[in-house]
Structures are given as C-alpha cells and as structure tokens.
C-alpha cells in the first residue's frame, strides 16, 4: 500500500500513544473502581471527602438554646414549638460570630405557608388553623397583630 494512505493511520496511532502516555499523570491516583463495582462505583475517591467538607448552615434549635434559652422555653409552650427557629430567623451558620445578626423573615407570605386555609382532605393542611388571605386584612403583615412566639389569640398585640 502507498505511504500516503498509511500516513493518517500513523497520525491516529501517534495520538493514541500520546494520550496513553499522558493518562497515568493526568488521572488521579484514587480514581478507579470502588465498592459498588465498575457500573456504579467508578469514581475519584477523594470526592467523598470533598462533599463532607461542605459547611453546615442550619444548626438546629439546640444550638439556639445555648444562648436564647428563655425564647426557646417560651415558644415551647405554644403550638409553634414544632417550628425550627431558623425557619423564620434564617440559617444560624456561625452566629453570633458570623453573621452577628440574623435577618428575620417577618413577611405575610411566611405565615401564609401554613395559615392559608386549604381544605385538602387526606392532608394535614386541613387541620391547621387558617385564613383566607384575600379577605383577612390583605396587605398587612401578620406580625402587626399576632405574635409568632405566642400564637394563641390571647397573644394578640
């Protein structure tokens, strides 16, 4: 066969050889087959540690309690005890060092997440006390009258 026919083949073989030579240096040492076999467990093992290093932002009620014991105790005597502090106060992260002050969500929409009356049978939503947002003081923030830490109607401001 003539040389000009074989030449592109040599180029391709050359590229393959170069890729094979670079591969051992480029692919990380921990890349390979792990516990779940070739089909599901072919990966770079170091990535598992990378995911574990993501910072935790939501610390939970117990974290808040360490400093705000009085607030937690008072809300624990109300039906709102089931709600995490951070659902309204925002993720604590490293509070009080970072951020020193949390941004509280006091919007009407925040309360309506649970308290728009939706009469849905076979859902817990129907059992919650709710209002019709179009007729119950529209446009006014709920916290103007209601105290979310003392939600019973006796707690009206």
């Amino acid at each position: 066969m003539k040389n000009h026919v074989l030449r592109p083949l040599f180029v391709v073989i050359g590229i393959v050889v170069i890729v094979l030579l670079i591969r051992p240096f480029y692919v990380p040492k921990d890349f390979g087959i792990h516990e779940r076999g070739y089909m599901y467990g072919w990966y770079r093992e170091g990535n598992i540690e990378d995911w574990k290093k993501v910072t935790v932002k939501y610390q939970g009620k117990e974290y808040c309690k360490a400093c705000h014991q009085d607030k937690v105790d008072s809300i624990d005597r109300t039906p709102h005890a089931i709600i995490q502090c951070e659902n309204c106060h925002g993720p604590a992260m490293e509070h009080p060092s970072e951020p020193p002050k949390l941004a509280i969500d006091r919007t009407r929409e925040q309360c309506l997440r649970c308290h728009t009356k939706l009469l849905y049978p076979s859902s817990g939503r129907a059992k919650l006390r709710g209002i019709d947002p179009d007729n119950h003081n529209p446009g006014i923030e709920c916290v103007m009258c209601h105290n979310p830490h003392k939600p019973s109607l006796e707690g009206l401001k």
Binding site: V56, K57, G90, P91, R113, C114, L118, S123, G124, L128
Partner: peptide
C-alpha cells in the same frame, strides 16, 4: 409521610440555603 405534609415549603427553602 404524605399525610403529614402541609405544603409549607420550609424544606425547599432550607435545602436551597444549606446546599
């Protein structure tokens, strides 16, 4: 437990901020 879910969406909000 779909009987308990009330559709408040606090889970979605927390997930987006956490992740």
């Amino acid at each position: 437990d779909t009987y308990k879910c009330v559709g408040c969406g606090f889970c979605v909000k927390a997930c987006k901020l956490e992740n």
